[in-house]
Design a protein around this nucleic acid. Structure first.
Ligand SMILES: [Zn+2]
Ligand SMILES: [Zn+2]
Ligand SMILES: [Zn+2]
Ligand SMILES: [Zn+2]
Lengths: 163, 163
DNA sequence: CTGCGAATGTTATAATGTTACAAATTTTGC
DNA sequence: GCAAAATTTGTAACATTATAACATTCGCAG
């Protein structure tokens, strides 16, 4: 319905997170998957900002809340969330971010600002088609696409003249 | 001139490596960069196959040759080689592969076969243009692109009916 | 030769991710 | 409800990838 707010624009982030959590619950219910408290809490932590979060950052937050967590706790939750398309792993950052297109079949393309660290997930048909075709031209059968663009987001471009 | 052989097709791989080394020497000479024996050996090891090689795999090979190497030896050489565009890091594999377009300004797109492990580097203008445009539509200033496609290469697709 | 910067050696450690097995919890069949 | 089965979580150890810090050596200009 409404387009999701851009990460690097001020927006009502609580609403942003709540929407994501509600969608996640719906998706899990639909697929008979159990969004347990730990999994839900990890999803919420990942959504806490639009900067991709490392697994050990999640772990630290859980621990600081008194949760008795170890690395497998976090990685298992993240695996589950990835499996149901609720979070993405950003390979170039070894970090995780909430999927803004959960439930829809899509190829995530991430614009990652090297200055502020925010990541924006896009879906662009012409990009995915071009990739699929280029791979197909080599008779390659595409299964997954990792597409991560780094650079400067609009906000951070305008700040550049400070240096 | 001649198109480079496809990794998953049989080809004269020695020639493949020799060409890469010769090009590397030329590029370094041109830029006043020192392709020292260690750096050259690491480049050669990375080129030994078309399967991206982990830093610790390189390290093991160096060690087995009697080279007195430690992790920093390898990472420093790889950093150098990346800096001069002679190798690429494959983020989704934590591995490195020789650049097949060294010296040319390009955006690498990698087709990585999950079965045989070979990676083919492509450059496709329509892909890079589409990416650049999609990022531009968000007023994002693109600096680097990580594009890694996994799936099945032609050879491995035909083997599939064995299972 | 001598001094300087680049490159390498060396040791230790940080950051990221996994394995294996035990305990607890939830679901299922009855 | 209740026991068996399956799923989830806890726990400890470990594996892999990468970097920091500092000493040493090497290549070269003066
Ligand atoms: Zn997504
Ligand atoms: Zn920014
Ligand atoms: Zn390349
Ligand atoms: Zn293959």
């Amino acid at each position: 319905m409404s387009a999701r707010a851009l990460p690097y624009r001020p927006h009502n982030h609580d609403a942003c997170v709540n929407q994501a959590l509600a969608e996640a619950k719906a998706i899990c219910q639909q697929q008979n998957a159990r969004l347990t408290p730990t999994r839900e809490r990890v999803l919420e932590l990942v959504w806490q900002s639009h900067k991709p979060l490392g697994a050990y950052d999640v772990l630290a937050k859980l621990t600081s809340e008194g949760h008795n967590a170890a690395p497998p706790t976090v990685y298992r939750a993240l695996d589950f969330l990835q499996q149901y398309g609720l979070v993405h792993r950003i390979a170039s950052l070894n970090a995780f971010t909430g999927c803004t297109h959960a439930g829809k079949h899509h190829t995530g393309m991430f614009l990652i600002c090297r200055a502020c660290g925010n990541a924006l997930e896009l879906t662009d048909t012409s990009v995915s088609t071009a990739i699929y075709n280029a791979a197909g031209a080599e008779a390659f059968c595409t299964e997954t696409v990792t597409l991560e663009v780094t650079g400067l987001c609009p906000s951070c471009q305008t700040e550049q003249h400070h240096e």
